[in-house]
Nucleic acid binder design. Structure first.
Length: 491
DNA sequence: GAGTTTGAAACT
DNA sequence: CAGTTTCAAACTC
């Protein structure tokens, strides 16, 4: 139903300009019954109470996308409100692709604390958002990190990615002088991570040389802009450098189209799969490319598989794999023996990690091997977050421009979380740019990860190269790979 | 907090 | 595509 029409109807229905009344009436119209609309209404009220933050102010980055403009046309105010309703759940400062969060967690509730997981704030969304409303200060401009009159609106237009990237190279180092640095950068991150507090749910980097424009940078790799908690130097991963960021992303994507896809492929069909053949699918989720660990035995967070809380797979080139979440060879239950052999320290640590990964699990209870890891989504900082499948099409839902238009997900695999509800709305827009369709990981169901190569080659389905996560056909991949928008400009 | 280790990313 | 270098996170002391 057209929300605008609803609003109009509501307005007619209600003489009072009272917002809550409007919400109540609207939700009732939408859901039909007051009971159903109640929760929704509460959400909306909460949102409306958060006031200016809705649009990226006050430290809450808004993923609210430009959808509004297309949907609502000229009526800015109205579009905003309607849009904020539609996208109430897709606001988040941080995006953590591998790490889906607990979607019960206060969507849109957090601001500076960055505790809102799961729904990512994609760069594109931010960028568009910033363009959309340059007058609204965001946390970056507020943070003092970037003044210098480099608002995206005033920054020089870079006509090509080469220009942009070159600009980065040539950009005066003095920028660092402008940037306000955290007093004690380095450990800030770790402390918060170790604390396990909500704040640690945010990606925050410590890059010194990469300008936060390479995949080395966790923020950049995660598709989020660096924020104040980051301790990076010469950071270009900020909204004011939107052009550079997007160009760089594009460049990287051209090299590896899946570079910004989540590293961990979570399988919604895990139950079936795991029950099917555990030797081949030691876990229900898989690292996209597999790891290449040599010394860590896939028992430390150096290992991307382990870090992602997934087992190693045939894709991995790891040596001496002892991944607690599932070994490359498919054996898992031997892990305890191995750990005992290698020392209790390892065991304890592993368990500790497992518990961190799954705070719901009772202490000292190893994560059941067969437990669908799609429910054990883990953040890079050991935070339990909602399954990727919960945000994959909303993540970035960004989609500011309605980019994320993954066709209807298999709802049987998707919990009816708020996010889902929200993003379902988004999904109704069938305006996935063609270029995105062509290039986005989401649509590259045939994307192949070479078992022996880090690089990902695209569309080329070789049935002989069956890998666990592909075994189920492309469908699962849809649920696994987040709707990370391609940088490909969609004009 | 400083230094080391590790493996992904980038480069050649 | 394999080997090497660079990088930043993870880890140790």
């Amino acid at each position: 139903m057209d929300l605008l029409k609803i609003c109009d109807n509501v307005k007619k229905k209600s003489d009072t300009p009272d917002w809550e009344t409007l919400i109540a009436a609207t939700t009732e119209l939408i859901y039909g019954s007051p009971s159903e609309s109640e929760a929704f209404s509460c959400l909306l009220k909460r949102r409306s109470n958060s006031g200016a933050r809705v649009r990226g102010g006050g430290g809450t980055m808004s993923t609210s996308a430009p959808v509004s403009s297309t949907v609502v046309g000229n009526n800015e105010t109205e579009s905003f409100d309607a849009n904020s309703i539609l996208h109430r759940g897709v606001r988040r400062r941080c995006l953590d692709f591998e790490v889906p969060g607990n979607n019960q967690q206060t969507l849109g509730e957090s601001s500076s604390s960055c505790v809102v997981p799961s729904i990512g704030l994609h760069l594109n969304a931010i960028a568009m958002s910033s363009k959309e409303n340059n007058n609204v200060p965001n946390e970056y401009s507020l943070s003092g990190n970037v003044k210098v009159g480099l608002q995206s609106s005033t920054s020089p237009v870079l006509h090509s990615q080469q220009d942009a990237v070159q600009a980065v190279e040539e950009f005066p180092k003095s920028l660092a002088l402008v940037k306000m640095k955290p007093a004690s950068p380095k450990k800030k991150r770790r402390k918060s991570e170790q604390s396990g507090e909500g704040e640690s749910s945010c990606k925050r980097c410590n890059c010194k040389k990469s300008k936060c424009l390479k995949l080395y940078c966790e923020c950049f790799a995660a598709g989020v802009y660096c924020i104040e908690p980051c301790s990076c130097i010469d950071c270009f991963n900020k909204p004011i450098h939107e052009d550079v960021v997007l160009a760089t992303r594009k460049q990287i994507e051209s090299r590896n189209p899946l570079a910004f896809a989540p590293k961990v492929i979570r399988n919604s069909d895990s139950i079936i799969e795991v029950g099917d053949d555990t030797s081949k699918t030691p876990a229900s989720a898989r690292h996209k490319r597999g790891c290449n660990c040599k010394k860590s035995n896939c028992l430390k967070k150096y290992c991307e598989c382990y870090q992602g809380g997934v087992g190693c797979s045939i894709n991995c080139r790891c040596e001496g794999c002892k991944n607690a979440f599932g070994r490359k060879d498919g054996s898992l239950f031997e892990q305890d023996e191995e750990n005992e052999v290698s020392g209790k320290r390892v065991t304890a640590k592993t368990q500790q990690n497992a518990e961190l990964f799954n705070p719901v699990a009772p202490p000292s209870t190893p994560i059941p091997y067969r437990q669908p890891l799609s429910q054990l989504a883990i953040s890079s900082n050991n935070r339990l977050l909602p399954p990727v499948s919960h945000f994959h099409h909303g993540a970035s839902g960004s989609s500011s421009s309605g980019i994320y238009n993954i066709r209807k997900p298999d709802m049987s695999m998707v919990s009816h979380s708020r996010i889902e509800t929200i993003t379902e709305d988004i999904d109704d827009d069938d305006d996935m740019p063609e270029n995105l369709l062509n290039h986005s990981p989401m649509t590259n169901m045939k994307a192949v990860v070479s078992p022996n190569s880090k690089r990902v080659s695209l569309p080329h389905l070789d049935s002989s190269e069956e890998t666990p996560w592909r075994r189920n056909g492309g469908r699962k991949l849809i649920h696994s790979i987040p709707s990370f928008p391609s940088l490909t400009p969609h004009h």
